[in-house]
């Protein structure tokens, strides 16, 4: 579904040379994957996430989405791809304040041509178990419930890929467990999930774990049924 080939990204620094954040990243994300990206702070996880999510451009390398090279696309076209193919879940939830759960979930549908947006939003909220909280404001919901609203928002356009950045980072243990179960359930139903996390437990749930260190990517573990690779360190290049 998504192939990254030789992705490099660096940021200029005033007094030193450019800071290389991503070096020659190669990864294939296949339909039905559940990938955890781990790594220390500053390793380039978030930058990789932004590039995967079409929010940021790589300096060099190829990004193929469903076989199409996205690097030359206009920002409007990229916005449409984000709308149709990618659902975001953030650590800080990023729900609009003073806006009900259902209105929050409807936001992506503002930018699509989907009909019956209200019914879609209701269905998405029901699918994350919030059928009885639809008219609540974010301020009236617990952290776990807010993150479920965010997941409903990510699901409402029926995207191929869910990108989650530290989704359990602001949740207590129990809510975190619930959320992990929800992601698991989504993946079991065939949804592709990429999650950035510090959370060992969450990373363990994923079928594949990749690690970024100093801008380089390495596959730690792949328990995808047909990969034939068990846990243990493998260089990415071999897998791709």
């Amino acid at each position: 579904m998504i192939q990254l080939k030789g992705i490099c990204k660096s940021y200029p620094r005033p007094d030193e040379g450019p800071l290389e954040v991503l070096r020659n990243i190669e990864i294939n994300i296949n339909e039905g994957d559940y990938i955890a990206i781990v790594g220390p702070s500053g390793s380039g996880k978030s930058t990789l996430m932004n590039i995967l999510g079409l929010l940021d451009h790589a300096d060099s390398g190829e990004y193929l989405m469903d076989g199409e090279n996205v690097s030359g696309l206009s920002s409007a076209k990229l916005a449409n791809l984000r709308n149709q193919k990618i659902g975001f879940v953030f650590q800080q939830f990023h729900l609009l304040p003073r806006t009900t759960a259902i209105e929050n979930v409807e936001i992506p549908l503002v930018y699509s041509n989907a009909d019956n947006p209200e019914q879609r939003a209701i269905d998405a909220l029901k699918s994350v178990g919030l059928g009885d909280r639809m008219k609540h404001m974010p301020e009236e919901l617990s952290g776990g419930q807010q993150q479920r609203v965010a997941i409903a928002r990510a699901l409402v356009t029926d995207p191929e890929l869910i990108l989650a950045d530290e989704p359990t980072g602001n949740l207590d243990k129990a809510s975190g467990e619930d959320l992990m179960a929800l992601l698991q359930e989504l993946n079991d139903n065939g949804r592709t999930i990429v999650v950035i996390t510090h959370d060992e437990n969450l990373a363990k749930r994923a079928k594949r774990t990749v690690r970024i260190d100093d801008g380089r990517l390495s596959e730690l573990r792949d328990v995808t049924p047909d990969s034939g690779v068990g846990s243990g360190e493998t260089q990415m290049g071999d897998v791709a």
Binding site: L55, H94, I107, Y111, T157
Partner: peptide
């Protein structure tokens, strides 16, 4: 600003 960020992330074009 966060609202604008979210809207763009979920697919709002600059013009929109």
């Amino acid at each position: 600003v966060p609202e604008i960020g979210i809207r763009k992330a979920v697919g709002a074009e600059d013009g929109q």
